[in-house]
């Protein structure tokens, strides 16, 4: 079940719109934050709060790529593979990650630490190649940097290489 806090947040957000249903994306974000993914309960809870049929929630969840229907690792590596990154070394990064983590696209490491995803352009082309890990951007990637990031995340739980406010050049 959604926590009191989450429910309160959602009821607040509902007020921003003339139509309850509009709060569905924000509500799903909150639910995903709570559970790490969108479980059946989570979606039902959102449906109840927004007075929707659960199917109306599910149709939305299956349309947007950032909602996840199954639990993923603690860190979701979302590597950009679109043109600018691709021609600036994304492919090396990808094959390195696959080798190092021993997993393929969509898979999660046995220790449930990392999930690997390939995504389309994340608006970091100027600093290609780039990836997003959970909410943080990591840019101008090199194989070495990737190793450092993974090590830091695995050990201290955050990486010094995360991008700050974006400026390019």
């Amino acid at each position: 079940m959604l926590s009191e806090k989450a429910q309160a947040e959602i009821t607040e957000i509902v007020k921003r719109y003339p139509v309850r249903r509009s709060a569905i994306l924000p509500a799903l974000w909150i639910a995903q934050r709570e559970f790490g993914y969108l479980s059946e309960e989570a979606m039902r809870a959102v449906a109840n709060l927004l007075e929707l049929n659960p199917t109306q929630v599910y149709e939305v969840v299956t349309f947007y790529t950032m909602y996840s229907l199954k639990p993923s690792g603690r860190y979701v590596l979302q590597v950009c593979r679109t043109l600018s990154c691709a021609i600036c070394g994304a492919m090396e990064i990808i094959s390195h990650l696959e080798k190092r983590l021993g997993i393929k696209e969509g898979e999660t490491t046995p220790d449930r630490l990392f999930t690997l995803r390939y995504v389309e352009c994340i608006a970091a082309c100027g600093n290609a190649p780039a990836m997003q890990i959970n909410q943080d951007y990591y840019e101008n990637l090199t194989v070495q940097k990737v190793d450092q990031i993974l090590n830091e995340l695995a050990t201290v739980g955050k990486s010094s290489l995360a991008s700050g406010p974006f400026m390019c050049p």
Binding site: E40, N53, T55, E59, F63
Partner: peptide, 19 residues
């Protein structure tokens, strides 16, 4: 009724049900 809704996207879009 809203029992049937669009699911997924692109060329795998389909009508479907909850879960």
């Amino acid at each position: 009724s809203n029992a049937l809704k669009g699911m997924d996207r692109g060329n795998l879009t389909q009508p479907g049900t909850f879960m």
